[in-house]
Simulated scan of single mutants.
Amino acid sequence: MRVALVAEQFLPHVNGVTHSVLRVAEQLRARGHRVMVVAPSYEKVRGPETVPELPGVAVERIPSLPLAGYPEVRVAGCTVHRMQRLLESFAPDVVHVASPFVLGWRALQAAASMRLPSIAVYQTDVPGYAGRYGIGALEPALWAHVRTMHNSATLTLAPSTASVQQLQKHGVQRVHRWGRGVDTARFRPELRDDAWRERVGGGRRIVGYVGRLAPEKQVADLAVLDALPDARLVVVGSGPEKQALRRALPNAHFEGFRSGAALASVMASFDLFVHPGEHETFCQTIQEAMACAVPVVAVGRGGPLDLVTPSHNGWLYPPGDTARLREHVRDLLGDDAKRLAFAATAHRTVQDRTWESVCSELLGHYEHARAASPLPPTLRTRLARRVGVR
């Protein structure tokens, strides 16, 4: 197949959207499919380019501007007509749109106008973020936009049971669940770094968080863990709340942004992973922690509900109940036998959740979309001629 991947965010900015697009493109190329990525530009990256991590994949950059207050996030402007030209030049069999909102909306409009099968992948709870950024009054309008976008797609894929139900509640149709894989070769318990643990923890247990330092992640809720006896809170990541969180968590160690092997080593060095964000559509970092044999304490809402089985691989606490968060953390830190049993179960939990298996499922969704929205013969012939396909 020829697959156009349209990403609302992409390299050099690394987040959940970027990561999933990279893994999907990587898997598609490994299976012999042709891939094009359409993504926002950055100051030093404009126009077509090649990405070392994606050999054989062309990346088309669309002019963008930094999001106010969060310059790492880009907002790309593109007309439907320009997107039509890009798609026509590549002649995709399916258009895969990752976390559509601005650029992705243009791609869905272009695909619909060209009668191309399209997949809209729901990854970011933008309406839910509104309240965290003090603009809760916009939530109904944001949901209306999400509903319009996703209902224009042939299929919508949501990463968790909770996100499927959330979209259906707000009137989105043709929603299917499609989870995320985890790289168990990269994230593994053998990477535990005792020297780093001693330097950062000084012999104490380490409770770690990994993710953006932004309001929607609710990292400030971890203040209830900041002064736990015999434990050190470690925060890994960057974002607009970094300085405010340093003040709110004066005893925590801020590791900064980490990726690749460095991130895997830090995560494997945790004794416990915590995630307080209530707007996670999936929460990939939970899977990565489990792959490192690290048990999890997370808020019982959204994506974590599918990932954490209480009393087996971690604990879930009610949204907003930070006293229960503290109680669960103290429970696992104070009982080595229980924590190690949870860790072993966490590790087993994710071993079959590979990107290979997840992308095999994705290809099934592509075929479903193609069957539901077949190209007219005249359009297929015209697109094929554009790229010399017979």
Rank of each mutant, 00 (worst) to 15 (best):
S357T: 13
A252E: 06
A158Q: 11
R330F: 03
S360L: 15
Q287Y: 00
Y42V: 01
S113L: 15
S99G: 12
V172H: 08
T322F: 11
L332F: 12
V236Y: 07
M290Q: 13
E356F: 11
P295C: 05
P48E: 05
V73R: 04
V236R: 04
V358F: 14
E26K: 12
P12Y: 09
E327S: 14
R85G: 13
F257S: 07
L362K: 04
G211F: 08
G320W: 12
M290C: 06
R180G: 08
A98I: 00
G128Q: 04
A68K: 07
F90Q: 02
V299K: 04
L340I: 13
A91Y: 03
H365D: 04
H279A: 07
V24C: 07
L142I: 01
L155E: 04
E241K: 02
V164P: 02
V17T: 12
G56D: 02
A144F: 05
L325M: 14
M1V: 07
V21Q: 01
E280Q: 05
L213T: 00
T349L: 02
A341L: 07
L138V: 09
L233F: 10
G303V: 05
G302E: 05
A323F: 08
E53M: 13
E8M: 09
T349M: 08
G303Y: 07
A384I: 00
A98D: 06
T18A: 05
F10V: 03
A162S: 15
V51E: 15
P310I: 13
L363K: 01
A144I: 00
P310L: 11
R147H: 05
A261Q: 13
D221G: 00
T345E: 15
A98H: 15
V219T: 12
V350S: 04
L222Y: 11
S113H: 13
L65I: 12
A7F: 05
Y129A: 08
L54S: 10
L103V: 07
L383P: 03
L233S: 08
R301E: 08
V51D: 14
A346N: 00
R212P: 09
P52D: 13
G56W: 03
P140A: 10
M36N: 00
A227R: 12
A158H: 11
L213K: 00
V97P: 10
L233D: 08
R192Q: 12
K242D: 05
R348Q: 13
E139Y: 01
D194E: 15
A337D: 09
R180K: 14
